[in-house]
Amino acid sequence: MAARRIRTNLADLARARLARRDERRAARGVLRARREQHAAYREAVEGALPYLASVRAPSLPIPGALGRELSVATYNVHRWQGLNGVRAPDPARAGFVISEVGADITALQEVLRPFGEPDPLERLADSLRLHLAFVATRVHRLGEVGNAILSRWPITSVFALDLSFSRVERRAAVAVQFSGVGGTLAVVATHLALVDRTRRQQVASILSHPQLQGAVLLAGDLNAWRRCEATRTLERELVGQESVAWPRSFPSARPVLALDRIYARGAEMLEVAAHDTAAARRASDHLPIVARVRLSA
């Protein structure tokens, strides 16, 4: 009897070991298939960059139309990875800050859309009842990274601008247009290059674009860590002067650089400030910049 129980137990152990081995093999197979799928998707995406990856309306839009005055924000969300960029992506942190700001239009940079997972940007936009446009600029190990615009009002047209004038850095912009009682407005969200000469080319390309004439707002991380020809051109053509005291936004814990800016053409900038709260200092390495704008009559 004892020997039979021992044999039965040994058989059970062997079956359990085989089952665990089969489970591990199946899990490895699933992971391998997922990696292959991601690699194929990554290759396809890299060949198409930059491209318009998402345009969505919320399931429950906010009523209202574009008027003469509006609030605009720009926010580099640092791939949803918080202040130091080493945490696991947590879009809820930056999402809370975006809801804190409550701008009519928000330009986002370094937005991460992970491979093989639900898109947190689309969930965020829908939860805030905002319209969304997203342009993928480059491929990160965790997914696609690019620029987005969230808007209280419906987007009437949208397009991507390729600003990759250097083989070292992939750069792009997403441009959207709105129509309302306040007239027609174009908004560009971008993240400019680190190199001065490339930034100058990118600014020239944006300002001369045939679809970006009339009232235009340019918002983004301009990497303007020092005065350069690109920022002087923007200030000369969109502000009317070459010396502007922009609010500091980077690093968020103790800002010393005014990297993030909002420029207006065909509109008056009534006020501009950094959104400096405890949540904003933790959610990204950049603070949001918020402006109140009045469209020209």
Rank of each mutant, 00 (worst) to 15 (best):
P91Q: 06
G146W: 03
L128D: 00
P154L: 08
F159S: 11
E117V: 00
P154M: 05
H78Q: 10
F134A: 11
E100L: 02
T156S: 15
P118F: 05
V97E: 00
V139E: 14
L132N: 09
R123H: 12
V97R: 00
V86N: 14
A103M: 04
A88N: 14
V158K: 02
L124Q: 02
V97G: 03
R138N: 07
R93E: 07
E117F: 03
W153H: 10
R87Q: 13
N147Y: 02
T156K: 15
L130P: 02
L128S: 06
R141L: 10
T156W: 11
R129Q: 13
L124F: 09
A136V: 10
V77A: 04
S127D: 12
D162Q: 13
R141F: 00
A94E: 02
L132Y: 05
L130R: 09
H78F: 03
A133C: 12
F159T: 11
A107Y: 06
E117K: 15
R152M: 10
V135N: 07
W80E: 02
F96K: 05
A94F: 08
P91K: 03
A160H: 10
E100G: 04
A136N: 01
E144D: 13
W153V: 04
L124C: 08
D104Y: 01
V111L: 11
E122C: 10
N84S: 12
I149L: 15
A88E: 15
P118C: 11
F159E: 14
F134Q: 11
S151Y: 09
G146S: 12
A136L: 06
R87E: 14
